[in-house]
Each structure stands twice: as C-alpha cells, then as structure tokens.
Write a protein that binds this DNA or RNA. Structure first.
Lengths: 215, 215
DNA sequence: CACTATTGTGAGCAATTACTCAGGTCGTGC
DNA sequence: GCACGACCTGAGTAATTGCTCACAATAGTG
C-alpha cells in the first residue's frame, strides 16, 4: 500500500473535452465505489472499472487514491456552501427559528445526496491532513457565521455564543446524519421539527431555568 | 485480504494461566495499535509485535482480525453499562437534570478511557454485522431505559418520548466524543454544563414555545 | 496527408496483508 | 523422570493492493 504523500493536486490538466469527461467519469465512479465498499475496500482498480476507464487513465489525473477522495470532498463542500448561501439570499431568515431550520434543511439535503459517501468522507477526513484542514476551515466559517448571528440577536440567552454555535452546528450535522440513516430511521420532517425545537429552546431559554418565548 | 466470515468466537479456550495472560496481552496490544493506526492499518502482525507475542499465538485465540475488535467492543460496552448501573444504584438521580447529568458523565468517562480506540470502534461497527448487532442491542436498551424514565416524569413535555430518548442519547454520545477531541477541544466541565442545559430545556419546555421550570 | 501533443490502455511489479503450519517449548499429572 | 497435551514460534504463502510504464489510439495543426 504505497501512496506516500505526493500531494493531492491532479498531475495533469485536461486540454481536451475527452479528458474532462474521463475525469468526471472517474469521480462519479469513485463516489459509487467508495459509497458501496468504503474507503479501504474501494480499490483504485474497482473505481477504474466502474468508471469504464483503464487504471492507467485514472493515475494520469490523480496522483494517488487519497487525491480522488479529496476532490470528492472539495466538490461536496463547495456545493454545500453554495446551496446554503444561495438559499439564504433568496429568503433571508426572519427569526431564530428560521435560521435554525435553514441549517437543518441544509444538512438534510446534504445527507440526502449520498449518505454512504458522506459517511466515508467524514470517517476518512481525520486520517488525511489535507482533508482535515479543508473541512476544519469550512466548519470554522460556518461556526463564525452562526456565532455572529447569535450575538446580533437580543433574545439569545446563552453564556458563550462561540461554544453555543459549535454545539448547534455539530448537533445538526451529526444528528441528521445518524438518525436519518439508522437501522430504524427517523422520518426527516419529524427529525427537523424536534431538532429545531431542541435548539431554539436551548438558545432562547434563560440560564436560570426559566424561559422566554421567542420575540 | 482474506478473513471470510468465520465467526468471531475464539477458536481455543485457554486452560492455563499463561494462555489467559497471552490473550490479555493481545487485547491490550490491539487496543493500542488500533487506536494509533486505525483499523485498516492496524495489522495483525503489528498487534502481535506490540503485544510481545508471536503472530501464531494471536491466531490461536482469534480466528481473524475482526474477532479481536469484536471482543474489544464487547468488553468496552460491558464495562460501560456496568459502571452506569453501579453508579445509578449508588446515587439514584432525583430530578431530570440529574438523570441527564449522569448520562453525560457516563459518556465523558467512556470517552476519557481511550478516545482514539472509541473512534475506531464506532467507525468500524457498521462494517461488521456482529458488531452492529451488539451495539444496536446496547443502544436499544439504553433508549428504552431513558424512554421509560421520560414517561414516568410529569414535567416532561415532549410529543414522542421514544424519539426524544433517541435524540438525547445520540446527542450525548456523539457530542461529547466530537467536541472533546476536536482540534480546539471544549473543556469537559463546560461541555457537561451546556449539554445538560440544552437537553433539560428541550425536555421540559412546553411544545408551544413557553417553558416551565423543573418541578 | 504527415507530425506532434494529448489521451488512453492494461499486463504486471513491488509491497503489503491476513493467515497457516511444521515444529519447538512449557506445564502438569503420574 | 516421563509422557502428553497445552501453548508458543515465526518463516513462509497466497492473495490483494496501489501504482508504473511501454505502447497504442485519438485529436489538433499545417
């Protein structure tokens, strides 16, 4: 099992349409194979076969197996944030509950795309420094965003907005993923309601145990 | 990579003390190796070396690599539930907050044991039917326990106790694990406070958005 | 057409892996 | 002491893996 850190950049830029198509086929082949077999058992030969491309072609565009997952991850993150910002611009959330609901919706859509692949991505991220960095950056940005939002709203009663933001985002990201793809899955609409309820109550309740209704 | 499902039962029962010691050394060697290298890169030869035991001895007691992880998981689960029930008998929780706090404490202790190994365990569980089953059973029992507890307490205002129990337990299990071992880790006492706050508010608030203080 | 750059191929190599087995060492009861 | 079973050893095997490379096919250009 070689693959001794050689960077994750593609080793060759496609100059013809044919090549771009090949790259695309490799990527979607990899997505299917990783989702079905997991990362370890998702061999490069299997990916090439599934993509309908020779193993040599695969290695013309990706220096190693990690690079394929890295690009898959990059595209996923990019698509996710793009969708989130677009949606936020279309319909700016009025109250806290709407903000939370928007986050939950984003997570559920994210999950709906390809739960299996998403799991592989999250599992493998900690073992690849480049992936970890990318995902940490993304997470940091989202946390900062929510944190600012919490600071701006007077109805928020929480001692540490930063911690609260982390808690909220981590909760959403994982609970959706976990409970929606459990052996006994929770229906997404139900899950959304409960999550929104839990988090808004957490954020708007006063520290002493009493609570106030949202403004 | 053979290992074609041969069952996870030990292939030989130790009859002498020497053998029991060997088994123990293999187990703790495996715990270290899996924690350090992950499951895929935690090879059986490395485990044997770390345990100070020959590879042949390893395969006298474990039919394959999966079986080692399975026993590790079984022991972990067993220890966890034992500790939880013992603690619950020592000091029966009075109010809801105490119940939640007890759950959180159990999770943090669980985490404190060996965060890395715990991660490997949770990652690998879905790929091994036996492991999945065992962990699912454990989870079901804990959920049922909390669910009953929620039903017994009048101050709980939540539409579906079963879903609420799942949500609470999944939240605790994962959030502790994730936030305590993040690159920027949240101090455990802080995390405990916030988690307890979040979950008690969720469980005791009335569905219409107002809330009542715990009885 | 010819010539070059780009793209595609797949047999096969080097490394690694889970796992075996023939034979040795140790403990235990007589 | 002796015999027998329990226990341990580790070089070796078959299979798998990520990846290379010599070559073939195709596209672009004049």
């Amino acid at each position: 099992m070689p693959s001794d850190r050689r960077g994750l950049q593609p080793r060759k830029q496609p100059r013809q349409v044919r090549a771009r198509l090949t790259r695309q086929r490799i990527l979607s082949g990899a997505a299917h194979v990783f989702a079905e077999y997991g990362y370890a058992a998702g061999t490069t030969n299997r990916i090439a076969e599934r993509a309908g491309v020779s193993i040599g072609s695969l290695y013309q565009y990706y220096p190693n197996k990690d690079a394929i997952l890295a690009e898959l991850a990059a595209r996923h993150l990019e698509a996710g944030t793009a969708a989130a910002t677009r949606r936020q611009e279309e319909e700016p959330p009025a109250d806290l509950e709407s903000v939370i609901r928007l986050c939950v919706r984003t997570a559920t859509e994210n999950h709906h795309d390809d739960p299996q692949l998403l799991r592989v991505l999250m599992e493998q991220a900690p073992r690849s420094p480049e992936l970890t960095a990318r995902m940490a950056d993304d997470e940091r940005a989202r946390v900062a965003h929510i944190e600012q939002l919490l600071r701006d709203r007077p109805e928020i009663r929480v001692p540490d907005p930063h911690l609260a933001a982390r808690l909220v985002l981590t909760s959403i990201g994982f609970l959706v993923h976990k409970l929606a793809s459990a052996p006994d899955p929770v229906p997404l609409p139900r899950l959304e309601e409960e999550l929104v309820a839990m988090l808004t109550r957490y954020l708007t309740a006063a520290p002493d145990g009493t609570a106030e209704p949202p403004a």
